[in-house]
Write a protein that binds this DNA or RNA. Structure first.
Length: 559
RNA sequence: UGGGGUGUGGUGCAACGGCAGCACAUCAGCCUUUGGAGCUGAGUAUCUAGGUUCGAGUCCUGGCGCCCCAGCCA
């Protein structure tokens, strides 16, 4: 484990693994990441991946990456590369990359063994009949009329299924367990189904029967010598079947342990619904910054360190829980606060003219790059007679507890001078278009030698030096805490979750920023340079706002 | 109503028969050239009814709540 990481608290899985090593149930540890290549990774996958990854490395074990590609109708190879890229970005490393499809031949031979043992049979019932005869939660199922075929007939039929002699849906291979089992998973579960089209992304047209999850997963774990098959709670009821197959076959039996999956407020984790959001254009692709896909979060400006910290803090347990999105935000802010360079940027510009400042004069002010990191040093910021400040930082009539600029009030321009507002210029409609101020030359740098105080410091950008920029403000995608509940998720999409600001004015040094650079715009929030940004006109994305005490006060005042 | 799982402040996770703690959130104060950050403090929790025990969040029994399972998805 990297020494600079916080010690991970123990949990029931780590304890179980330690116990298995201690009593020699296993003499080594091997885990696996089992993504299905049918979509992009999201924050929920990260939790699961990290459990597998950490359990392995904390025990000097190995992690395999095994793509669960048992259904050619859903899976595509384009996702394989994307999943690897995203997993690497988050910092996960595996020693071996495999595919469920690597084991199709061997798995088929194991199926034949089960048939010969009388533990599997070919069922000719239609899908509807199979479903109808499965029974219900409270009533036992009805045995298939084909359940007692001879081993010879089953072997013959299975081979002909494999050879493509039968159409899709006409037959399946089923485990022969117990149609009256109280656990529905054990009522003669399907092992192979017939799928002729489309071609598999790796095995092409070689196969026209494909294994079901239950038949593939555990057997693959066993073949790979995986010791701990860690998965989410919904597989708990599959564990008896997982074990049943391996016991019948007499093969190496890994231990499956389940934990609860991540639920995050205001986030969408369902792959199906995620795809829908992309398809209907509710978001702009899988990397939309409002999505909690890894690609979306990366584009939004989250760091992998912040995501790792978040996962580390939420713990591992078995009960259904909902993590407050504010925790994720807090992790991102904490990380970005320590690492990002400070800059000044004005999102909603308001012109300020300093009447007593010499026309044409320019001064270079020293600005701290990161107060959390002394080694980040200083930069020069040009100051002149005409500036832009934030519209929010001026009020003609200040509400209670408003400390910023208003007629007669003195504030500090960050790293520059104290200024006092003398007058306001309005247009015909009464909109404030210009604020006139005077400055105190004795406060250069922002220090008043006479010791007088101001209650507020505001940021600014020198108008003649300002770089115009487009800034995109992203907010929560959904208006509802749990958009995944029910099927109305599209109606909870917040149309105001993206606001495009143009033009904004940012300080001169930002014209040299590179794609992916992260900054704190002082008093506003954390921003990063979008991949679509152009050198002449930079384009920033807001990751998160800074905590805003004034906004809270204003809200309580019932603005 | 079958089977499986799970109940600890607002949220999440600890406490492994011995002072119910940590983080986020909330509130208050201090500090501040970011109404940021930081510092200090506060409030709020063991689903319920019995039982065992010197002592129960933890063990036992009975209730109750919530989640998952009836794909030829994973």
């Amino acid at each position: 484990m990297d020494s600079n990481e916080a010690p991970r608290p123990s949990d029931f899985i780590r304890e179980a693994v330690a116990e298995d090593l201690k009593n020699e149930r296993f003499t080594y540890i091997r885990t696996r990441l089992p993504p299905e290549p049918n979509g992009f990774l999201h924050i929920g996958h990260v939790k699961a991946f990290l459990i597998d990854y950490n359990v392995a490395r904390e025990n000097d074990g190995e992690l395999y990456l095994r793509f669960d590609d048992t259904n050619p109708a859903k899976e595509e190879s384009e996702y394989v590369e994307a999943i690897k890229e995203d997993a690497h970005w988050i910092g996960i490393h595996w020693v071996k990359e495999t595919f469920a499809s690597d084991y199709f031949d061997r798995l088929y031979s194991w199926a034949i063994r089960l048939v010969m043992l009388g533990k599997a049979y070919v069922d000719d019932q239609s899908p509807e009949e199979v479903s109808k005869n499965r029974g219900t939660l409270t009533e036992p199922g009805i045995e298939s009329p084909f359940r007692n075929r001879s081993v010879e007939e089953n072997l013959d039929l299975l081979e002909r299924m494999k050879n493509g002699e039968f159409p899709d849906g006409s037959r399946i291979l089923r485990a022969r367990i117990d149609m009256a089992h109280p656990n529905m998973v054990m009522r003669d579960p399907a092992m192979y189904r017939i799928i002729h089209e489309p071609a598999h992304h790796r095995t092409g047209q070689k196969w026209c029967i494909y294994p079901m999850y239950d038949w593939s997963h555990g057997q693959n774990d066993s073949m790979e010598g995986v010791t701990h098959s860690l998965c989410s709670m919904e597989y708990e009821i599959h564990r008896p079947l997982y074990e049943w197959f391996l016991e019948q076959l007499g093969e190496f039996k890994p231990r499956q342990i389940e934990f609860s999956r991540l639920n995050l407020t205001y986030a969408m984790m369902s792959k199906r619904k995620l795809r829908k959001l992309v398809e209907v254009g509710a978001v702009n692709g899988w990397d939309d910054p409002r999505l909690t896909t890894l690609r979306g979060m990366r584009r939004r400006g989250y760091t992998s360190a912040a995501i790792l910290d978040f996962i580390n803090r939420i713990g591992v347990a078995k009960n259904t829980s909902w993590i407050d999105f504010a925790l994720l935000e807090s992790c991102v802010r904490e990380n970005l606060n320590k690492t990002s360079m400070r800059k000044m940027a004005v999102l909603h510009p308001l012109k300020v003219i300093i009447d007593n400042y010499p026309e044409g004069q320019v001064e270079e002010m020293d600005a701290v790059n990161n107060p959390e990191d002394a080694s980040a040093g200083f930069r020069k910021v040009p100051f002149s007679r005409e500036l832009y400040i934030e519209q929010d930082d001026f009020r003609e009539v200040p509400p209670p507890k408003y400390y910023r600029l208003y007629p007669g009030n003195e504030v500090r321009l960050r790293y520059a001078y104290f200024i006092k507002c003398s007058s306001v210029i309005k247009d015909n409609q009464g909109n404030i278009i210009e604020v006139h101020c005077t400055y105190d030359p004795a406060t250069k740098g922002g220090d008043a030698r006479d010791g007088r105080k101001v209650k507020s410091t505001i940021h600014w950008v020198s108008a003649p030096h300002a770089v115009p920029a487009e800034i995109r403000l992203y907010d929560k995608l959904f208006t509802k805490e749990n958009p995944d509940e029910g099927d109305d998720f599209l109606s909870y999409v917040d149309s105001a979750s993206l606001e495009v600001l143009n033009p904004c004015f940012v300080e001169k040094s930002l014209s040299e920023s590179q794609v992916g650079d992260k900054f704190q715009f002082e008093r506003i929030g954390y921003f990063c340079v979008d991949p679509e940004s152009q050198p002449v006109k930079p384009f920033f994305i807001r990751t998160f706002t800074l905590k805003d005490a004034w906004a809270m006060i204003e809200q309580k005042q019932g603005k």
